[in-house]
Simulated scan of single mutants.
Amino acid sequence: MQKEPQLDRKEVLETRGYLSDVAVWPSPSRMDLGGWLDNFDQGLDSEIAIALLEAHVHIDEEQIVYAVASTIRGISSRVEFGDSISRAANWSEFVRDVLISFPLSRSGDPTASGYVFARIAKRLRFEENRILDSEHLIKKILTSGPSSVIFLDDLAASGTQFTRDWRRRYQTDSGKVSLADLQSKDFISSAYYLPVVATQDAITKIESECGVIVAPTYSLDRDYQALDANTRLVPVALRPSLPEFFAKYSPRTGRDEYGPVGYGDLGLALSFHHSCPNNTLPVLQWSPCAESWRPLLK
Rank of each mutant, 00 (worst) to 15 (best):
V12L: 06
I141C: 12
L233R: 02
E61H: 15
D133K: 10
A237I: 10
T163C: 15
D256C: 06
V95F: 08
D60G: 13
V79Y: 06
G114L: 02
R9D: 11
K140T: 11
S20I: 11
A51C: 06
G114Q: 02
A215Y: 01
D45W: 07
Q6H: 14
R252W: 05
N230E: 12
S271P: 00
R239K: 13
F162K: 07
A269K: 00
G267V: 02
F151E: 09
W25I: 01
A89P: 03
E207A: 11
L19Y: 08
S70Y: 02
K140Y: 06
D153P: 08
V212F: 05
L233W: 05
G159Y: 02
L37W: 07
E61A: 15
L242F: 11
V95Q: 15
S275I: 10
F246L: 12
Y224P: 00
V214K: 09
S107Y: 05
S241V: 05
P235A: 05
L297I: 14
P5E: 08
T280I: 04
Q183P: 01
G254A: 14
L104S: 14
I206P: 11
M1A: 11
S134C: 14
A215S: 09
L53G: 08
P146E: 06
F126C: 01
T172K: 03
S184W: 02
K248I: 04
T217S: 12
D173H: 13
I100E: 04
D8N: 15
L238K: 08
D83Q: 09
F94T: 04
E14D: 07
I206T: 06
E11T: 14
L13T: 03
I85A: 14
S76C: 08
S275G: 10
T253E: 01
G159W: 00
F81L: 12
E62D: 15
S107E: 15
N279M: 03
T172H: 05
K139A: 15
K205H: 14
E291I: 09
P216F: 06
I150W: 02
L13F: 03
N129R: 14
R294T: 14
W293F: 02
L242Q: 04
L270G: 06
S77T: 07
L52Q: 05
I85H: 13
E4W: 00
V212K: 02
R123S: 13
Q6W: 11
F245A: 13
G211D: 01
G82S: 09
K185T: 08
D38G: 02
E11Q: 15
I131A: 01
I120E: 07
E61M: 15
L132H: 05
V65W: 00
S144T: 11
G211I: 03
A202V: 09
D109H: 10
T160F: 12
S208N: 13
S101M: 02
R164E: 12
L99P: 04
D45M: 01
H56C: 01
I48A: 05
D228F: 07
V197A: 10
V12C: 04
F272I: 00
R96N: 14
S275C: 12
L99R: 02
R164T: 09
V212Q: 04
S147F: 02
R294H: 09
S77G: 12
V197C: 11
S144N: 11
R222D: 12
